[in-house]
Simulated scan of single mutants.
Amino acid sequence: MPDPRYIVRIASPLDPLPGSDPEELARQCDAVRKRLDASAGTRRVAIESMDMYFVHDFVTMTEAEGLIALTDRDAAPSRRFAAQADPDFRTSHTCYLDPADDLVAAVERRIADLLGIDMKQGEAIQAQRYTQGQQFKVHNDYFASGEPYSAAVAEEGGQRTWTAMIFLNEVDVGGSTHFPYVGVQIKPRARTLMLWNNLDARGFANAYTRHAGLPVEKGMKYVITKWFRERGWSKSRHTDAYRS
């Protein structure tokens, strides 16, 4: 059941970003949804208010270990698009992985092929490392309109459509990905790919996809995340270096 603290009633769609076409976004996301539904080994989660899928063993153990090593090499304190007064809002470490790296390129291609989305629409993979006590409180992957960053992200490729997240390791205690609006908590399972659509069936940003990385209570958590845009993505001032 949804956490009662987060139950919301959405009376009207969230406004689109400048230049976004909800009908085109709905078409793109529907094509991905149909492709995933027909894909062997892809499991859909039974949630009415959002699209969520899983693929177990999406990367090998060797690939996962290699991605963890790249994360440890370059991770720095995480940043956010929007200003946040809460110093504990996002306390993980983050880096962008170099798409010229053979391992990174292979994983990116595999994700894009599964979803059937042009590689040009994919952002660079972001790696996240959470140590004990670190977290990322409830946030959204889609871009809200009317924010200081809205025009910039619209120019660099527009709205985010699908999120692809791979859990690279097992976490001893804690570290689940929590979707409080739909009552789902996902415990990290090593080498599992989780996918979700950040938009609703009409092509508007879906507030039910807001989620949190719950605090790691024991151990460490490594994930990589790849976001896709409605148009071709160009690296912006928000991601001015792959090794941030």
Rank of each mutant, 00 (worst) to 15 (best):
M1C: 08
P2L: 03
P4V: 04
R9C: 08
P13V: 05
P13L: 12
D15F: 11
P18L: 11
P22W: 14
E23L: 13
Q28N: 06
C29H: 06
V32P: 05
R33L: 00
R35T: 02
D37V: 03
A40H: 10
R44V: 01
V45D: 12
D51F: 04
D51N: 13
M52H: 03
T60W: 09
T62Q: 14
L67Y: 09
A69H: 10
T71S: 15
D74M: 04
S78Y: 04
S78V: 01
Q84N: 14
D86K: 06
D86W: 07
T94Y: 10
Y96F: 12
A100L: 12
A106E: 13
A112C: 13
D113I: 05
Q126V: 03
Q126H: 11
Y130P: 00
T131D: 15
N140L: 01
E147L: 11
Y149F: 08
E156M: 14
Q159L: 04
T161P: 01
I166G: 05
V173G: 04
S176G: 07
T177W: 09
F179Y: 15
R189A: 09
A190F: 04
L193G: 03
D200L: 07
R202P: 00
G203L: 12
F204P: 03
N206Y: 11
N206P: 05
A212V: 00
V216R: 00
W227I: 02
F228G: 01
R229Q: 09
G232N: 15
S234Q: 15
